[in-house]
């Protein structure tokens, strides 16, 4: 592959992944309200366009048009930096996720993944751990006690759950023997989905994903009844929009990560038997991944409108006293079973 072809292909892929992330996040806001409406026996948004399908656009326009207020006493640069970091970190995670196998066009092979670094999982962990800064800086720069409390809650929550998440991933890596997301996805062809081998690890990872994305039942950083709006109390206009949007992109990416790590990624059993051409199979794989991912996005919403919020000490107790011992136990269990079956 020539350099120019390579650059054009990567640029197109980046553009597609970026716009799909934004599109999915946009329509997740719509889906969230529709799901909420369904769960609470309401209609949900239905004014803008047929079935309210233009609602996200209307919201976006509203966000842009609103007056932008920067509090007088706050640190202006950091105040702007906060939402920027939140948005930036949630957008760059899509780079390592294998969205499909490879397309073969005109003798070239185009893998449907922006970059396959050999430490893909660690990259995801690093980006999540940096995501905290967006919330912390924003909350601090607002110079508001509620914002600061929200920021502190967010950071302590994310650091605590990162540990359990990392330990769950260690058990998964013991099983797969690789840190590259592409290899992990490829290993799960057919029915060899990791969730079958790592059910406990999956459960821990899922709970931690909820905590990392600040979704209910772990949305204490912005719990409205205690902290007004939490870390984004002082934010208005599109800066607030960035924070809210980053949460939905995070949800999209975590769903993609969960599907890739534990639910076979782009694999689906029995597809090979259809005898389709490799290109068609690759495209079908992308569709399967998106089907799994949409289910998890729905799951995030389902939980949000079903389970009430934790208390903060309960949240910390769950993280440190239940999930971390459980994930350590999971590592021991994985090791024992691997030793039993002579896999080591």
């Amino acid at each position: 592959m020539g350099l120019s072809v390579f650059i054009i292909y990567k640029a197109i892929l980046v553009l597609i992944v970026f716009s799909i992330s934004l599109f999915m996040a946009m329509y997740s806001t719509y889906a969230e309200r529709k799901v909420a409406g369904f769960m609470q026996d309401r209609l949900g948004p239905n004014r803008a366009g047929p079935f309210g399908i233009l609602q996200p656009l209307a919201d976006g326009v509203k966000m842009f048009m609103k007056e932008e207020i920067i509090p007088n006493v706050s640190n202006k640069y950091l105040f702007i930096l906060g939402p920027s970091i939140a948005m930036f970190t949630s957008c760059i995670t899509g780079a390592v996720i294998p969205w499909g196998t490879s397309l073969h066009i005109a003798g070239y092979t185009f893998p449907l993944q922006i970059t396959d670094i050999n430490i893909g999982i660690l990259y995801l962990m690093a980006v999540t751990s940096i995501g905290v800064y967006g919330i912390m800086i924003g909350g601090w720069a607002s110079n508001n006690k509620y914002s600061l409390l929200g920021a502190l809650r967010a950071s302590s929550q994310m650091i605590s759950y990162e540990i359990a998440m990392g330990l769950a991933i260690i058990a998964l890596v013991m099983h797969t023997g690789t840190l590259s997301l592409r290899n992990i996805a490829a290993q799960q062809s057919g029915w060899h989905w990791n969730v079958i081998y790592q059910p406990l690890g999956f459960l821990i990872f899922l709970i931690c994903a909820f905590a990392e994305t600040n979704r209910t039942p772990f949305d204490l950083p912005e719990s409205d009844s205690e902290l007004i709006g939490g870390y984004h109390t002082e934010y208005s206009s599109m800066k607030l929009g960035f924070y809210l949007f980053a949460e939905y992109i995070n949800m999209f990416i975590s769903s993609a990560v969960i599907s890739t790590l534990y639910f076979g990624g782009y694999n689906m059993p029995f597809v090979h038997r259809l005898g389709l051409s490799p290109n068609l199979e690759a495209i079908l794989g992308v569709i399967f991944l998106f089907a799994k991912l949409c289910f998890f996005i729905f799951f995030f919403m389902w939980v949000r409108w079903t389970i009430p919020r934790f208390r903060f000490d309960q949240l910390m107790g769950l993280g440190w006293k239940v999930l971390i011992p459980l994930s350590l136990f999971n590592i021991g269990l994985t090791g024992t079973i691997m030793w039993w079956f002579h896999k080591i």
């Binding site: 660690l122 962990m125 690093a126 999540t128 751990s129 940096i130 905290v132 912390m136 950071s155 990162e162």
Partner: peptide
């Protein structure tokens, strides 16, 4: 990446905290 996870992502967050 470990430098980013441990130092930038965890220890410095605690400092900031």
């Amino acid at each position: 990446i470990v430098n980013v996870i441990v130092y930038a992502g965890a220890i410095m967050v605690l400092f900031l905290f």
